[in-house]
Design a protein around this nucleic acid. Structure first.
Length: 584
RNA sequence: GGUCCCGUAGCUCAGUUGGAUAGAGCACCAGAUUCCUAAUCUGGGGGCCGCAGGUUCGAAUCCUGCCGGGAUCACCA
C-alpha cells in the first residue's frame, strides 16, 4: 500500500463530502492535487496542496478551503492532527498506531512490498546492451546492461508487462570484418603463421577458439578458397560464437534477456521495405539530395540523390538518409523497421538504452517512431561514460590495442553485486567514476557496503543476539506480525517506519521517470536511518532491539527491523543485487 | 556552425516531475564504544542553485537568450 495514495483517497472523499453538503461546488478537478511527505519533517507526516489547487476552481481562497477541509480530515481515525500552514498547505500528522501497523503490512507482503499496479499491465519493451557481436562486452557496455536490467525490473515491480530485449547488429560491414578476422584465426588453427593481425581487423584472442571451432567443423576446405566461398558461412558461425560469448558475459551479471532480435532477419524478410512503404504512405519518404554538414565538411562528401526520411516535417534541422551509396539500407532504415516490428508485436511503449556516443541519434529515432504510429512512444535513455580508476589513478582502455577492460574483468575484480549497485549510484545521464579500490572498501564511503551492512546487522540481531537471549521466541515473519507494536513510539522508530513506507511511492515515481538510480539512493537513506537507530541503543539501553526481561518489546523491535530488512531486500532485488546476511 | 547532455557547499553528487527555511557523503573541527559488528553514530561551520529575463499564489525544477564544460555531427552500427 502506498500511504500517500491512500490518503489522497481520504482527502478526495472528504472533498466529495464538502461538495455534497454544498460547502464546495460540484465537479471539482482533483488532477493537480498532491499528497506528499513535507520536505521539513516538523511540518508533519503528510502535506497536501488541495486547498491551493482548488481555490481558483471553487472561486474561493486557499485558507478558506483549508478551513473547511481540516475538520473533515480530523474525523479520520488515522489522522492525529491537522494544521493549515503558509499559503494554504494542509499538514497532517498520522497516529502512531497507523505507522506501527504498517510493519505488519510490510511483513505480510515480504519481497512483494512496494509492488504497484500503476503500470496497469501495459506492455513495455526495454532494449539494452545490443552491443555489436564482434567481441566480448567491455566496461562501457556494463553500465547500460545494468541500467537496462534494473529499469526493466523496476517497471515490472510497478505493474508493467515488460519484455527485456537485445538487438543483434548482425547485418553490417563490421560482421564482414569479424568474419575476415575469424578466417585468419581459422588459418592459424591449421598451423599457419599469421603474424601480426592486419590493421582494421579484430586482433583479440577471443577469436582463437572460433578459428579452432571452424577447423574442427569445416576441415581444410577453405584454406585456399576465395572469400566468396566462406564469407557467408563464417559470418553466421562467428556471430553465433560472439553471441554465446556475450550471453555468457551477461550471465556473470545475472542478466538474461528474453528476446534476441536479429537485424539480419529484417533485411532478409523485407521488413525494411514494409516499414518504409508504411512511412511513404504517411508522406515521410522522398528522394532528394542532402545538404552537406555545416561547419565540418567531410573530405569524401559528394552530393547524391537518395531515399530520405523527412525529419524536417517533425521539426528537425535536416532529413536523414535511408540508403547507402551502394544501395543497401542504412542502419537508420533498419532501426525504423525494428521499432516498427516492436510496435506490431504490441509494444506501444518502448525504451532504448544507448551509450553516450549515440546521443545524436535520439531525436531522429523518436521522430521515426512518432511517424510510424500516433500511439507509439519511444524513450531513449543515454548512459554516460564510466571512468575507471584504481586507487585514484585513471585506468585507460584501448580498444585498438585489443587490451580493453572487459565486463568480465570488472565482475571478476569486484563481484556481481558491487558492479551492479555502483553502476546505479549515478543518474544515467551523468558520468560515473568507478574506482576498483573504493567500491570494495568496507566503509560508509562505499554505498554498497553501507546498505549491505545494514541488512547484515539486522540478521545478526535476529540470528545471534535474539536467539541467545530468547531461544524459545518464534521470529518467523508470521509470528512477528502478531507482535504488539504499540511500544514503538520513539521518534527514531517512527522515522524508520516512515522511511520504509516511502518505498512504494519511490517505486512508482522511479518507474514513471525511468530512473532506477532512485532506488539505490533510497536504500542508502533507509540504511542510514537504521544505523542511526542502532547507535541510539548505545546511549539509551531501552531503545535496543533485544531487551533483557521484556519479551514483548523485543518482539515488537524484531518485527520492526525484520520489516526494514525486507524493504532493503525488496529494493535490492529491483537492482539485481543479493542482500547478504553476514559480512565477511 | 547544428543537435543533445551537464552547470547546486572546497570536492563528488541527490533534490520526491512547480511547494514552505535547498539536502547527503567526502574533506575540516569537536564528541560517542562496561552495550546486539565503532565496518557505525551525534554535533558544527560552510550556498547570488552558471548569468539575465519571463510564466504564477510559489521556480534549483517549466520557457527564452547568453556564459562555461562534455558528447556527437551524410554515406559506420
Amino acid at each position: 500500500m502506498n500511504v500517500f495514495t491512500h490518503f489522497r483517497g481520504v482527502i478526495e472523499a472528504a472533498l466529495d463530502g464538502l461538495s455534497a453538503s454544498g460547502d464546495l461546488p460540484d465537479g471539482l478537478d482533483y488532477k493537480n492535487l498532491t499528497v506528499e511527505p513535507p520536505r521539513d519533517a516538523s511540518h508533519g507526516d503528510l502535506a497536501t496542496n488541495a486547498a491551493m489547487v482548488l481555490a481558483k476552481q471553487a472561486k474561493s481562497n486557499p485558507r478558506a478551503i483549508a478551513g473547511l477541509l481540516a475538520p473533515a480530515l480530523e474525523a479520520n481515525a488515522d489522522i492525529a492532527s491537522v494544521e493549515i500552514a503558509g499559503p494554504g498547505f494542509i499538514n497532517m500528522r498520522l497516529s502512531p498506531s497507523f505507522w506501527q501497523n504498517q510493519i505488519s503490512t510490510i511483513l505480510g507482503a515480504g519481497l512483494g512490498y512496494g509492488d504497484s499496479s500503476v503500470g496497469a499491465k501495459e506492455k513495455v519493451n526495454v532494449e539494452y546492451v545490443s552491443a555489436n557481436p564482434t567481441g566480448p562486452l567491455h566496461v562501457g557496455h556494463t553500465r547500460g546492461a545494468v541500467f537496462g536490467d534494473a529499469l526493466a525490473n523496476l517497471l515490472s515491480k510497478a505493474g508493467f508487462d515488460v519484455c527485456k530485449e537485445y538487438l543483434i547488429n548482425d547485418a553490417g560491414g563490421q560482421i564482414d570484418t569479424l568474419a575476415q578476422s575469424a578466417y585468419l584465426r581459422y588459418r592459424e588453427a591449421h598451423g599457419e603463421d599469421i603474424g601480426q593481425i592486419p590493421e582494421g581487423l579484430y586482433p583479440g584472442d577471443y577469436l582463437v577458439p572460433v578459428g579452432q571451432m571452424l577447423k574442427e567443423k569445416y576441415g581444410d576446405k577453405w584454406l585456399d578458397a576465395d572469400e566468396s566461398a566462406w564469407l557467408q558461412t563464417i559470418r553466421l558461425e562467428a556471430t553465433d560464437a560472439m553471441m554465446d560469448l556475450i550471453r555468457a558475459d551477461l550471465e556473470t551479471l545475472g542478466i538474461e534477456q528474453e528476446v534476441f532480435f536479429s537485424e539480419r532477419t529484417l533485411h532478409e524478410t523485407n521488413r525494411i521495405d514494409e516499414a518504409i512503404e508504411d512511412l511513404r504512405g504517411r508522406g515521410f519518404i522522398y528522394r532528394g539530395v542532402l545538404e552537406p554538414p555545416k561547419g565540418k565538411k567531410p573530405d569524401d562528401w559528394e552530393a547524391r540523390e537518395q531515399t530520405l526520411f523527412k525529419a524536417t516535417e517533425l521539426g528537425e534541422e535536416k532529413d536523414h538518409a535511408l540508403q547507402k551509396a551502394n544501395g543497401d539500407y542504412t542502419y537508420f532504415a533498419a532501426d525504423i523497421a525494428y521499432h516498427f516490428d516492436k510496435y506490431q508485436r504490441g509494444f506501444h511503449s518502448m525504451i532504448d538504452v544507448w551509450g553516450a556516443d549515440h546521443a545524436g541519434h535520439v531525436k531522429r529515432t523518436q521522430n521515426a517512431v512518432k511517424a510510424l504510429a500516433d500511439d507509439a512512444h519511444l524513450d531513449v535513455k543515454i548512459c554516460q561514460l564510466v571512468r575507471l580508476f584504481k586507487d585514484g589513478e585513471p585506468f585507460k582502455m584501448s580498444k585498438r590495442a585489443g587490451n580493453f577492460i572487459t565486463l568480465r574483468d570488472v565482475v571478476d575484480e569486484v563481484g556481481r553485486d558491487v558492479t551492479r549497485f555502483i553502476m546505479l549510484t549515478r543518474k544515467n545521464d551523468a558520468p560515473l567514476d568507478f574506482d576498483f579500490g573504493k567500491v570494495t572498501e568496507q566503509s560508509k564511503d562505499n554505498p554498497v557496503f553501507y546498505v549491505q551492512y545494514a541488512h547484515a546487522r539486522i540478521f545478526s540481531v535476529l540470528n545471534n543476539r535474539a536467539k541467545e537471549m530468547y531461544p524459545e521466541l518464534n521470529i518467523s515473519d508470521e509470528a512477528l506480525q502478531e507482535a504488539d507494536l504499540s511500544i514503538l513510539s520513539d521518534e527514531s522508530e517512527i522515522a524508520l517506519i516512515q522511511q520504509c513506507c516511502a518505498f512504494p511511492r519511490i517505486i512508482e515515481a522511479a518507474a514513471e521517470a525511468h530512473e532506477p538510480h532512485r532506488i539505490a539512493f533510497f536504500l542508502y537513506d533507509l540504511a542510514s536511518e537504521f544505523h542511526s537507530l542502532w547507535n541510539k541503543g548505545n546511549e539509551k539501553a531501552n531503545l535496543r532491539f533485544v531487551i533483557e526481561g521484556d519479551e514483548a518489546a523485543t518482539k515488537a523491535r524484531l518485527a520492526m527491523i525484520r520489516a526494514v530488512a525486507s524493504v532493503i531486500a525488496s529494493g535490492l532485488s529491483v537492482l539485481g543485487v543479493t542482500p547478504v546476511e553476514e559480512m565477511r
